[in-house]
Write a protein that binds this DNA or RNA. Structure first.
Lengths: 141, 141
DNA sequence: ATTTATACGCACCAAAAGGAGAGTATCAGA
DNA sequence: TCTGATACTCTCCTTTTGGTGCGTATAAAT
């Protein structure tokens, strides 16, 4: 994986880099890990998916659509996503309050990136379950 | 996202499904969520990356390569990945013990699926940091 | 005889994640 | 006047996650 994405996402190689082995700057690596840890989170992924599917949504609509999320986690995750530039939060100064959330372009691009993982999960559900059964059987024997 | 992956990973549409809106069976959705939650985990992703890069590795080699993982988490995550069919664990009956880990085809395919996310993270590091700074500024004002 | 290396399992503890429920401001409608 | 709706925040509590240190079998090396 290292090899695959290192080249593709970086600026083109410069001459001075020629002899340097395929190792990423550890600081960059740390940042990437932090970012992935942040973003590859259950709630973030569900919100991302819901907003991608439904477009612009209000707080309680999101809550209902996701169904399994608590208010606390929803607020928390939305704030974090807003902070990271993944969603835009629009407050309408009315009463009762009205707040709408929608994906930014950055958010949409992340959704697209995760698409491969969703596809993988759907395509390999059965295989994983077979593996689990096989593992249980082997454990008994 | 729903729309994108629903069609691509499922069996071709049958006639009786024509009028059914683009909604996934909630049980399947729950399974997919569980599986993604399982697999989109920090340690799993790091082990996946390391094994993809280095091929077959022993326990302590993995531990050293990842650097920040505790023995407990390494064992735990490796077991889980083995259970899910992502890695193959080979025990050599020698003393001191020798155990080698390598990715299965399923594991490799997951690595490939995550590739998009790694690329996204690398490509958008700067943008996320700008967004964070902007958010802080806005919070102060 | 003692140390070393390997790949763990186990017990204990700290930190983080997450859920439940109550509280808040405000206005519209019954 | 009382209720309801909205989008939260705050506190308290439980669950999960993760780290640390210790123990173990065994043969080779010192």
């Amino acid at each position: 994986m290292q090899r695959l994405h290192t080249r593709s996402a970086e600026a083109p190689l410069e001459k001075t880099e020629r002899m340097i082995p395929d190792v990423v700057d550890p600081r960059v690596e740390a940042l990437v890990h932090e970012l992935i840890g942040r973003v590859a989170d259950k709630w973030t992924m569900l919100i991302l998916e819901t907003l991608e599917e439904k477009g612009e949504l209000r707080f309680t609509q999101l809550s209902r659509d996701i169904g399994t999320i608590s208010q606390k986690m929803l607020t928390q995750t939305l704030r974090q996503m807003e902070r990271d530039g993944l969603i835009k939060r629009t407050v309408h100064a009315v009463v009762p309050p009205k707040v709408e959330y929608r994906l930014t372009d950055l958010g949409k691009s992340l959704g697209a990136a995760f698409c491969g993982v969703w596809i993988w999960a759907e395509a390999n559900l059965a295989e994983v379950h077979e593996a689990r059964n096989a593992f249980e059987q082997a454990a008994k024997a």
